[in-house]
Computed example of a mutant assay.
Amino acid sequence: MESTTSHLYGSLDMRNKTVEEVYVEMLKPRDGIRLKVQYRPEEFTKAKGLPGDSFYIRALYDRLADMEHELSFKKDDILYVDDTLPQGTFGSWMAWQLDENAQKIQRGQIPSKYV
């Protein structure tokens, strides 16, 4: 007789993860997955249709954009990432280059940490 009990070999807490990080985890091959979810319609309504996560980062290298929609930046520039899954695509982020007063100068695409 086969056992219907499933064994949990590891767990991953998705709280405090970016949308892109959750997306990457969901793409990994697995035999099965068990999700623990909480019904929160008010939170879902607020988040539905919004872009991916947003946060500030410091550039660790110089980058010269190759294409018109890409963003150039210099090492130690502070960038404001405002979408980690632009148009639902994986591998790049949309970010703003900021001036010394943290005002947005120019927006463009930058490589994500997964590229």
Results as ranks from 00 to 15, higher is better:
E20M: 04
H7V: 00
F73D: 01
E42Q: 14
S54G: 03
I105G: 13
L50I: 11
R58P: 00
P29A: 07
R30N: 06
I33A: 08
I33S: 06
Y56K: 07
R15H: 12
L35V: 04
L79E: 03
L35D: 09
D31P: 00
I105D: 12
D66P: 02
L64K: 05
S112K: 04
L98I: 01
L98A: 07
G49Y: 09
F44A: 00
S54P: 03
F90H: 03
Q106T: 10
E100K: 13
Q109K: 07
E100H: 12
L79V: 08
V19M: 02
E43R: 08
I33C: 04
T84S: 14
Q103H: 10
M94Y: 13
Y114K: 14
H7T: 02
Y61E: 15
S11P: 02
Y114D: 15
V22K: 05
S72T: 02
P41H: 10
D82W: 15
E20D: 04
N16G: 06
D53M: 13
I33G: 06
L8T: 05
T89S: 12
L71N: 13
V115Q: 13
D77H: 03
D76G: 00
G108A: 02
P51H: 06
S3H: 02
F44I: 02
K74H: 14
T5G: 01
E68V: 08
Q97K: 15
Y23I: 00
S92R: 04
S54E: 12
T18M: 14
K75S: 11
D31V: 00
T89E: 13
L27V: 13
G32T: 01
H7D: 06
P86A: 12
L71W: 15
K75G: 09
E68M: 12
G108P: 01
D66T: 02
D31L: 05
